Amino acid sequence: MSPRGVATPDVRERLFAAAERVVERDGPGALTSRAVTTEAGCAKGLLHTHFAGLDAFVAELCLDRFARAAGQAQALSRLTGRNTVAGNLDTVVLALLDAAGPALSGLAMSRAASSQRIREAMEGGAPGFRAIEEAITAYLAAEQRLGRVAEAVDPGTAALAIAGTAHHLLMTSWPGAPDPRLSMARLVALLVDGPGPSVRHPDERRPD
């Protein structure tokens, strides 16, 4: 535990990661300022030193994770022509739906003040699903020019379907529900590759 008066390095990320662990393990109802700081192994007042209360903390956590996913989407341009198109997209959209993602979204939705802060930040230009959609559109268009995406695919429509579905799954999933990543992987493959063999999530076991 960090003693009082001693700076904690990377305190925001330390607290964010601790909150994700609490929500994933114990559910959104278990998230309190004390639960976060105890999980992070730091002074109990540290969260309120850096954030204007728990609602502000939850909003900043969600905005940070949306921005991280948007950054991953923008990095897709560096993968143009490499690996598979569906695989490259999976690295972005499945990151949104990791174990803590749906729980954090549910947490934000249950806290009106957090939701309001997130909405205002998005309206002010904070990166989120719109940035993800735009980055996927540009990536699909680039791959289409290389002949790796069929001409029949409209990049903007496909990107909207991918980003919109990811948003829907985040808002309607909860801990213990079926893993939303499988549905997302199937949608990506269908939009990019067209109908074909069923898509199997990497964690799914093949029958003997």
Rank of each mutant, 00 (worst) to 15 (best):
A177H: 14
G196C: 11
A141E: 12
N88V: 00
L79E: 13
G196M: 08
R206S: 14
R14L: 11
P197C: 11
L160D: 06
V85Q: 08
R145I: 00
T157L: 04
E60L: 10
A100H: 14
A7Y: 06
A40E: 04
A35M: 10
P155K: 09
R25A: 14
D208Y: 00
E204Q: 15
E24Q: 06
T91W: 05
L190W: 04
R206N: 10
A189Q: 12
D10N: 13
A159E: 05
V23R: 01
E39F: 08
A141R: 09
A18V: 13
S198E: 15
L76Y: 03
V153L: 03
T37A: 07
A142F: 04
W174Y: 11
V149I: 11
E120A: 14
Q144N: 05
A121S: 12
A112Y: 10
V36C: 09
G41R: 01
A75K: 01
V199H: 07
Y139Q: 00
Q74C: 05
R82Y: 05
V6E: 15
F129H: 10
E123D: 12
P180I: 10
A30I: 08
F57C: 08
T38M: 04
E134R: 13
E143V: 02
W174M: 09
R68P: 00
K44G: 09
P197G: 09
G176H: 11
G176S: 11
A103M: 10
A150F: 02
G53I: 13
I162D: 06
Y139H: 02
E133R: 12
